[in-house]
């Protein structure tokens, strides 16, 4: 299978690889996928408690090149956005940006899931002090 230049670029130079303290109150962690399906993504966000702006994002992904590229791109896109803005990111935008073929669309879906799961985790942590509704999937 031939990959788009953007997928190759993210694969060769993945952005924002790493991990943050998952116990921190400012950090939301999303872990989606399953090893037997061939894809697992961990996406973490660090949110400013006052502005709700995502100040940092990290990822680690087990999966094909398109899965790595989708999650790498997702960290780039969420950074600097508020959590509500980040929830607007659609998998179809990832498909378009990376020129993913139809068989790789599930990689973009997983990246969108990872963003939502990380935000959901962060919101849950905030709910302990100030209740915020968790966006239903």
């Amino acid at each position: 299978m031939a990959y788009s230049d953007k997928v190759l670029d993210h694969y060769s130079n993945p952005r924002n690889v790493g991990s943050m303290d998952k116990n921190s109150n400012e950090v939301g962690t999303g872990l989606v996928g399953a090893p037997e399906c061939g894809d697992v993504m961990k996406l973490q966000i660090k949110v400013n408690p006052q502005t709700h702006i995502i100040e940092d994002a990290k990822f680690k992904t087990f999966g094909c090149g398109s899965a790595i590229a989708s999650s790498s791109l997702a960290t780039e896109w969420v950074k600097g956005k508020t959590v509500d803005e980040a929830l607007q990111i659609k998998n179809t935008e990832i498909v378009k940006e990376l020129a993913l073929p139809p068989v790789k669309i599930h990689c973009s879906v997983l990246a969108e899931d990872a963003i939502r799961a990380a935000i959901g985790d962060w919101k849950k942590k905030q709910a302990v002090t100030e209740p915020v509704a968790v966006a239903a999937k």
Partner: peptide, 12 residues
Amino acid sequence: DLSKVKWAAEAH
């Protein structure tokens, strides 16, 4: 233990 993790993979 990865075999004991409850994976959220209903989407697949």
